[in-house]
């Protein structure tokens, strides 16, 4: 009879040991789970942070996905070309003159920058013709921007092509 309790004791010991082992195993799993939770928390936080910081640009991208129609472009082209008064010496310019434009929402020109500064310095025909293009843009302010698409024209490019002047 006395041995029984020993056996029990042994069993208890075994179960105790198993329990301890189980507890130990469980606690290890818990640590891993905690680590996973922490990782998930961090990723969510990073995403939140990115969204918070880059949120404005995402919104811009969504807004500027609005397509411009041919009518939108033609309206601006027809408006600006009325102001482009070019010398017939522009027939010497064998390339397109690109201008960087910044406009306000109401279409008024905020700035005009002649893109190819190197050529502007070196080539007298390019320089004179680029000046006529710059005057045309400034004179044409405000531009007839399509309603609801003004953001598209915050920064954009004009390509002035003088190849229509021939035989001079």
């Amino acid at each position: 009879m006395e041995k029984k309790p020993e056996k029990i004791k042994n069993r208890q010991k075994e179960s105790l040991a198993k329990g301890i082992l189980n507890t130990l195993t469980k606690s290890q799993k818990k640590v891993e789970k905690n680590k996973k939770d922490k990782k998930e928390y961090n990723n969510t936080e990073i995403l939140k942070k990115i969204k918070k910081i880059a949120g404005n640009s995402n919104r811009q991208v969504q807004q500027t996905e609005i397509k411009l129609s041919i009518t939108d472009i033609n309206k601006i082209q027809n408006h600006v070309k009325k102001f482009w008064n070019v010398s017939y010496a522009a027939s010497e310019v064998k390339m397109v003159i690109t201008l960087k434009i910044r406009t306000s929402v109401d279409g008024s020109i905020k700035s005009v920058i002649i893109y190819d500064k190197n050529l502007y310095q070196k080539d007298k025909f390019y320089r004179a013709t680029a000046d006529t293009a710059r005057r045309a843009v400034l004179d044409s302010s405000p531009l007839p921007l399509p309603k609801g698409k003004e953001k598209k024209f915050e920064n954009f490019l004009f390509d002035f092509d003088p190849s229509f002047i021939t035989n001079y």
């Binding site: 008064n85 070019v86 490019l157 004009f158 229509f164």
Partner: peptide, 13 residues
């Protein structure tokens, strides 16, 4: 986005 709007002006006075 800025570069995707390019408007060509190929006539004048």
């Amino acid at each position: 986005f800025a570069d995707d709007v390019r408007i060509k002006i190929n006539s004048g006075q």
